[in-house]
């Protein structure tokens, strides 16, 4: 159960629209199914009343949408941001990707989002409705009239299980109060992969990445992937629409992308959330974050606007490459 209700959020958003502070709201819109929530720009109270949702399936991070949305008009847009979204928000500001003056950031408290794939594993695919019932979810299926009762904590998405912060890194106002930066265990999974032998690790990633269908959803959703012209879409790059020369080349897409966002990735986990093939892409990014922390000291992208990522900053105390090898194991 989320701390703040849909009702309270809508009331506040209606006020914002009525005051004329903002003329539109970036929020979650209901889809065909309960779990099928879509980002949407709401422009009226009626629209909000009809279609706005807030619940355990509002995972989408709207930060990246602000690049295009703020360019459309001189009026302010209100945006709803969960704590993890605010890091992406700040990182984009650091990179001068949108005008902060044109945004009214509403921070919403988040209790973690559910993973529909985990639910479907329990109930099967035929879900007709999901109702929040305290700490439980009542999942109605086409197989039975009675709902399947599922503890929300059992179906929390991976990124929420190792949530790094319940504290908003940026906001104009908060709904549902603020939390703390958490002592998360998010590098445990990375450590497990590090502990594998080279062959095991290769086999692990081979298994995961070979499922990739190159739908580009991870890239399209990634708030760090905001190039004007992506190298994979650029005919001059020599890589656009290139057919893979061997079975390894497909994997390079993800490795190149992880390098590309290294130091800028806030670990928001959107890449893994949207992957239709359930590839744990966030682990590649997390490995970079873990190494950067080990080599250069703790750095959280998007924690502070204007911070210099260690990879594009120079310090005389920077670790020498010869000393870096092996340091990541500690």
């Amino acid at each position: 159960m989320q701390k703040i209700s849909r009702f309270d959020i809508i009331n506040r958003l209606k006020d914002l629209l009525a005051d004329g502070n903002v003329d539109r709201v970036l929020g979650w819109k209901k889809g065909e199914f309960r779990y099928d929530v879509t980002p949407h720009v709401f422009t009226s109270a009626q629209e909000l009343e009809a279609d706005f949702v807030w619940g355990d399936f509002c995972g989408a991070n709207f930060s990246k949408y602000l690049i295009k949305e703020t360019a459309k008009s001189d009026k302010k847009v209100a945006v709803l941001l969960k704590p993890c979204d605010t890091y992406s928000f700040n990182q984009l500001l650091t990179e001068h990707r949108f005008d902060r003056e044109k945004v009214y950031a509403v921070g919403v408290a988040c209790d973690g989002m559910a993973d529909i794939f985990k639910i479907k594993k329990i109930t099967g695919d035929g879900i007709s409705d999901i109702k929040e019932n305290g700490e439980d979810l009542d999942v109605y299926t086409i197989y039975d009239e009675k709902p399947v009762k599922i503890k929300k904590t059992d179906v929390l998405s991976e990124r929420c299980l190792s949530c790094k912060s319940k504290k908003h890194a940026a906001y104009d106002e908060l709904l549902g109060g603020d939390g703390d930066v958490l002592d998360s265990n998010r590098f445990d999974e990375v450590a497990k992969i590090e502990a594998m032998t080279e062959e095991e690790r290769y086999a692990f990633w081979q298994g995961e990445l070979s499922r990739c269908i190159r739908c580009n959803a991870c890239r399209d959703v990634c708030p760090a992937c905001t190039c004007e012209k992506c190298v994979f879409d650029n005919p001059n790059s020599g890589m656009e629409n290139k057919s893979p020369a061997n079975e390894f080349e497909e994997k390079l897409f993800h490795i190149i992308r992880a390098f590309h966002v290294a130091g800028r990735c806030t670990d928001c986990g959107e890449c893994s959330r949207v992957c239709p093939q359930r590839i744990p892409l966030h682990l590649l990014n997390r490995k970079f974050i873990k190494d950067i922390n080990a080599f250069y000291g703790e750095y959280q992208a998007g924690e502070v606007v204007g911070s210099r990522a260690p990879l594009v900053d120079f310090d005389k105390e920077d670790v020498e490459p010869k000393n870096a090898v092996g340091k990541e194991d500690k």
Binding site: E95, H96, R97, C227, N234, V312
Partner: peptide, 21 residues
């Protein structure tokens, strides 16, 4: 300029202050 997204990374690393936005 068509590829540049204005992030200032280059400006920050330039040791000669040769880049402006």
């Amino acid at each position: 300029e068509w590829m540049c997204n204005g992030c200032s990374s280059c400006e920050n690393v330039c040791p000669y202050h040769a880049i402006t936005y």
